[in-house]
């Protein structure tokens, strides 16, 4: 089993889009995937056309069993075989407060999900420094950091990389799999310059960029992934991401 955390401390960089699309792409390739929504905005459910629920709170605070908090993602007319979700909502923020009050342990997520037997677990995280983001980095094997190609998002990226290094010093095995440039627009100098800066610092850890695409926003509005909405450039670009992730499987 491989656990992947999707994180960047800047908001609006495509974390949830990447988490949902990658999870569904892996499921379409025959993998069993559990998607865990650690963002109190709870938008993993929204992006999949499902109701928000307090699954993460119930798992970590009220200690409900996994079977009680894992949900199917099935919707009519679409193939989501193998894709499961632990949804979140605003109570996820409360969970962080309770965990802190109880004496937060970095391995709380790893322990809570220890019995999961899917091929992949994917964490979508909130755009902030927080206990759950640290716990997700601790529990994960790989970090994928979506980064909009602008200055502010790059600053958010430095935040998550700094946190990653700090967590690794606590005996975490999490490795940087990729920085995924998002909202790329080759017509703007800002996009090109930021992408060049990222590549200069991080080399081949920077993957091929995902272009800015209206269809990705339409997908969120309709509760569909880009693999369900319509074939387009974004479909192809995220298919590349899925294939690259699969290429790192051992």
């Amino acid at each position: 089993m491989i656990t992947i955390v999707i994180a960047n401390q800047k908001g609006g960089v495509g974390k949830t889009t990447t988490a949902v699309t990658l999870a569904h792409g892996l499921a379409l390739q025959g993998k069993g995937v559990l998607l865990v929504d650690l963002d109190p905005q709870g938008q993993v459910s929204t992006f999949l056309g499902l109701p928000q629920e307090s699954g993460v709170f119930d798992l970590l605070v009220t200690r409900q069993p996994l079977a009680a908090v894992i949900r199917s993602t099935a919707i009519p007319d679409h193939d989501r075989n193998g894709l499961l979700v632990i949804p979140g909502n605003s109570r996820t923020a409360t969970a962080q407060i309770v965990l802190a009050a109880e004496g937060f342990k970095l391995d709380c997520l790893a322990r809570a999900l220890g019995a999961v037997r899917t091929d992949y677990i994917i964490f979508d995280t909130s755009p902030s420094v927080g206990l759950l983001q640290e716990a997700a980095l601790y529990a994960a094997d790989w970090l994928i950091a979506p980064c909009a190609v602008d200055y502010a998002a790059t600053e958010g990226l430095t935040g998550v990389l700094t946190t990653l290094q700090a967590v690794k010093e606590q005996a975490s095995n999490c490795q940087l799999l990729a920085v995924l440039p998002t909202f790329y627009d080759e017509l703007t100098r800002e996009s090109a310059t930021t992408l060049r800066q990222l590549t200069y610092s991080l080399g081949d850890a920077v993957w091929e960029p995902i272009h800015r695409a209206t269809i990705l926003r339409e997908c969120a509005a309709e509760g569909l992934t880009v693999f369900e909405k319509a074939p387009c450039r974004a479909t192809q670009e995220y298919a590349v991401v899925v294939e690259k992730v699969l290429s790192y499987e051992t």
């Binding site: 094997d141 290094q165 940087l176």
Partner: peptide, 20 residues
């Protein structure tokens, strides 16, 4: 911003997964 965390980046890049 990446120039402010060069030590962290060096450590992180030294421990990346390898594609099969």
């Amino acid at each position: 911003p990446m120039q402010t965390i060069t030590d962290e980046i060096s450590a992180i890049l030294a421990d990346r997964p390898t594609p099969r």
